[in-house]
């Protein structure tokens, strides 16, 4: 997995390529958290176009960032979600608290 970070004002756009599991979630978490703190990020956009796989470890890290961002008064959005990832977002109930789009 590799991630690309782009900051637009107080919004952080994270483009993820590859698989999100327990192993890669650690990298995701540390890189995104560092950027959130460094640049005083308020809103987070997760671009999932390049995500080829995600399991419940991915849910854990998204929820973790969601808590941080909502504590800052911001919003989390997941865009360009693929069907397999959509299924796990649906089961986890994440789609009821986040804005998700295909």
């Amino acid at each position: 997995m590799d991630i690309k970070l782009e900051t637009i004002g107080t919004t952080l756009v994270v483009k993820i390529n590859g698989e999100i599991d327990h192993h890669t979630a650690q990298v995701f978490k540390s890189e995104v958290d560092r950027e959130i703190n460094l640049r005083n990020i308020v809103n987070l956009v997760l671009d999932f176009d390049g995500v080829t796989f995600m399991d419940s470890s991915g849910i854990g890290v998204v929820v973790g960032r969601y808590k941080e961002i909502t504590a800052r008064g911001g919003k989390v959005m997941i865009i360009r979600v693929k069907p397999q990832v959509d299924k796990i977002l649906e089961i986890s109930g994440l789609k009821t608290i986040l804005e998700c789009s295909h």
Binding site: K29, D55, S56, G60, V63, K87, I88, I91, S92
Partner: peptide
């Protein structure tokens, strides 16, 4: 504390 979602078995059961 490790940001585990608690959804592992639910995913296995559903999938």
């Amino acid at each position: 504390e490790c940001e585990r979602s608690g959804m592992g078995f639910t995913v296995m059961q559903t999938f």
